[in-house]
Amino acid sequence: MNLDWLDAFLIYGFFTIVVVSGLGLLLHLQLGLARIANFGVVGFFGIGMYSFGVLYVKVDWPFGDPWQFLVCIAAGTLAAGLSGVVVGWLVGDLNEDGVLVGTLGFATAVFILATTEKELTGGAQGMGGLQFPYDVGGVKANELLWLVITAAVVGGIVFYVWRVHRSPYGRLLVAVGSNEPLARSLGKPTFRTKLWLFAVTSAGMGLLGAMYGVMERFLRPTNLGVDITLAAMVALVLGGSARVWGAVVGVVLTVGFFDIIVQNYLPVPVEWYSQALPVMREALFGAALILVLMFRPFGILGDMRRDKLMRSLHGD
């Protein structure tokens, strides 16, 4: 397939938009519905990425791709989900500050483990050996197909979030986030509810981490910087943390603007790419967050509108 017309940077830009949108959507279930401020998104992302990578590269499997690939990616997803259960169990009964510090600490621990466990992860030098489970003719074609597959997975996450908003489970999450003691007094096992939420969303974050690792093909601890969490968090708050499409709109406006428009179409000096642009990116995201919180605290799409949803569902 001749894809000379397609800039490799564009594929990466759109891939980043898709992955961060997926993370933002999962974070939306935690923050937007259940009011759990998880600042350790990249920790679960990293568990999925490295579990998949280590199992795929280091283990001598009796079968090859695509089964080896699928088994490893499923194991990475499962490992992230289990880590979500453990972290959820540890922070589930803490207040907002405790959850914030606990999840941030978890992400830091994952980063340190990825750096220091050289036997497993390759440490700071990184670990290669990952590859796509197919070959459709050339690196660019493989990457494009992987972008489409990842977009389909994130489409599935959008559908799941959309369904949660319309289900008794979504109602329960909002109830737990809105007034947990009251929810408990109504017979709801709120701790168990939060644990299940952590398990499912963390598994999703791990799956996205593994998919990100496949696209990178070379895992480094620098992939697990706090900028991933910040990108998802800023985009979600900017778009509207309580709305289904908030994360996607926010990611398009932040990551999309910077990683597609600025990096591909603006006449930026080449020497800026290594040092200045990443710093400018974080500064711009931070400024956007401050402005949104000052002038539109519920985000561009606004606050949750359960009344509208109810009217649309019940027709009155």
């Binding site: 109602r171 109830a175 009251l182």
Partner: peptide
């Protein structure tokens, strides 16, 4: 409860549904 006896982000119908789970 005396205060905060409803889920402010949910509609009246949904509040009753949560009670009816």
């Amino acid at each position: 409860p005396q205060e905060k006896g409803v889920f402010a982000d949910l509609s009246v119908f949904e509040n009753l549904c949560v009670g009816g789970m």
